[in-house]
Design a protein around this nucleic acid. Sequence first.
DNA 1: GCCAACGTTGGC
DNA 2: GCCAACGTTGGC
Length: 151
Amino acid sequence: MNYWLVKSEPYVFSIEDLARDKVTHWDGVRNYQARNFLREMKKGDAVLYYHSNEDPIGVAGVATVYREAYADPSQFDKKNKYYDEKATKEKPRWFCPDLKFKKAFKAVVPLSKLRETKGLEDMLLLRKGSRLSVQPVVKKHFDKILKMAES
DNA sequence: GCCAACGTTGGC
DNA sequence: GCCAACGTTGGC
């Protein structure tokens, strides 16, 4: 089983939105590195749900991979903002998994706290200029963040 | 294949 | 709103 982190701006789609919808298509990712990680996700993998941009910035909860990545339908839809004219049904460019709500933390574990925490220094998220919206997370870091959320 | 210009992300 | 750090695009 693998561990991941996905970023979302809460005003677009927050952990509360996911809690309401239960399952969502994680579509609209238009970065090749992020896409490659999406394709590596396996059913049952655990995903940290990160709120970016809006206070409080940090990890807001946990989701699980519910369906492995398939061709992202938004790339074929001319009216969609994520439409990609170079993508075809035969050769899709972009993929999305389905994510299922698992839990929302009582309080967001803030980015500032993550930065202060010993043992998390080498997390991809905390590297300077890391803008990647889908990232792998090692179990050790994942477990640590869960503990922080509970305390 | 190089690289300048431009666009985006995301913390502050 | 600013801006650093990237990623992408397109001319050459």
